[in-house]
Amino acid sequence: MIQVSKLLAQGAGLAPVLLKRAASVTLDWDTRQKSRFQVTDSQGRELGVFLPRGTVVRGGDVLVAEDGSLVRVVAAPQALLRITACTAHGSPFDLVRAAYHLGNRHVQIELKPDHLKIEPDHVLADMLRAMHLIVNAVEESFEPEAGAYAAGGHGHAHAHDHGHEHSHGHSHDHAHDHGHKPAAKKTIAIQAAATPHVHGPGCGHDH
């Protein structure tokens, strides 16, 4: 097994020709948010990745192996919910409200100018539709926003190398809840439902 302990964010400083020749690994978000994992690259080599605690690997980053070889990281497509504003019944500000409510529940969110992406959760999907937003299931790469206090670009406890098969374990009850009905929070918090049947007609009304 080849050890990897160095990461170049987005291949900084490397010539394009070197990146083109490099091996690659395709990793989902659950793996990329860990600082220690094992993976097989496109050349069939077994890699043992040991990065500093709290490091998050993003699509486009480059791993540097102990033998000096380079390994490009590709963010794997995975099941996600894409959230967009309903032009018929809402406004782009609805996305801001959605981001606030999701963030208040410690949900990891990828922020885009015209949409949000989160991991599948039927409870949150229903909540978002009730806010007049469009929620669709997609298969895309996931690059959630890093927390403001993140070490190495990730602020949630997921930087700890837990072995959960789902990466949205946000049921931890932090003090940010300010005492407002903790039992209700547990009910609405992310549950283990990764259902693909989340498409809804129109803008999510009458569900």
Rank of each mutant, 00 (worst) to 15 (best):
H178I: 11
H168L: 07
E143G: 09
A183L: 11
K34C: 03
S167Q: 05
S42Y: 07
G68S: 07
P52M: 05
M127G: 00
C203A: 02
A23M: 00
H164F: 14
E46C: 10
D177K: 07
T84S: 15
R97L: 12
K20C: 02
A79W: 14
A150C: 05
S5P: 01
Q3L: 12
L19S: 03
T31C: 13
D121P: 01
K6F: 04
H115M: 02
G68E: 11
A130I: 00
G48F: 03
A175D: 14
R97Q: 14
H170V: 01
A194H: 12
P77N: 11
I188R: 10
H115K: 04
H115C: 15
G13P: 07
L18F: 06
G155T: 09
H178C: 07
E110H: 14
A151N: 09
S24F: 11
I83W: 03
T31F: 04
V56F: 03
G68C: 06
K186I: 10
L133E: 07
P16T: 03
I2W: 07
D126K: 13
T84H: 01
R36S: 12
G54K: 03
V49E: 02
I2P: 01
D126H: 10
T31P: 08
K117S: 02
I109T: 09
A157K: 11
H158T: 09
N136V: 06
D114R: 15
S35A: 15
G54T: 04
H170G: 15
V64H: 04
E145T: 06
H172Y: 14
H132I: 05
V138W: 08
A189H: 08
P120G: 06
H132S: 13
S35P: 05
L95M: 13
H207Q: 14
V62R: 01
I134R: 15
K185Q: 12
D206Q: 08
Q191K: 15
H164V: 01
S69W: 00
E139R: 15
G179I: 00
P113A: 11
A194N: 10
C86Y: 00
A189C: 06
G44I: 03
V135E: 04
L27H: 08
H115S: 14
Q108Y: 03
I118W: 03
M1F: 05
V49C: 02
D173S: 10
K112R: 13
A22K: 02
A76P: 07
K112G: 14
G90A: 15
K6C: 06
D41S: 02
V25E: 08
S5N: 13
A184R: 10
Q33C: 14
M127R: 04
R32W: 07
A12N: 04
V135S: 06
V39C: 03
G152D: 09
A99H: 03
G163I: 01
P77T: 11
I118A: 06
Q3K: 13
A192T: 09
S24G: 00
V96E: 05
I118C: 03
V123T: 08
T84P: 01
C86M: 04
K112N: 09
P92K: 02
H172D: 05
H154G: 10
P120R: 13
E110G: 13
R36H: 11
L19Q: 11
A148W: 04
Y149R: 11
A130L: 06
Q3A: 14
G163D: 05
H174A: 13
A193E: 09
H197L: 15
L81R: 13
D177W: 08
T87G: 12
H154P: 01
T87C: 00
L95Y: 11
F50I: 00
L95G: 10
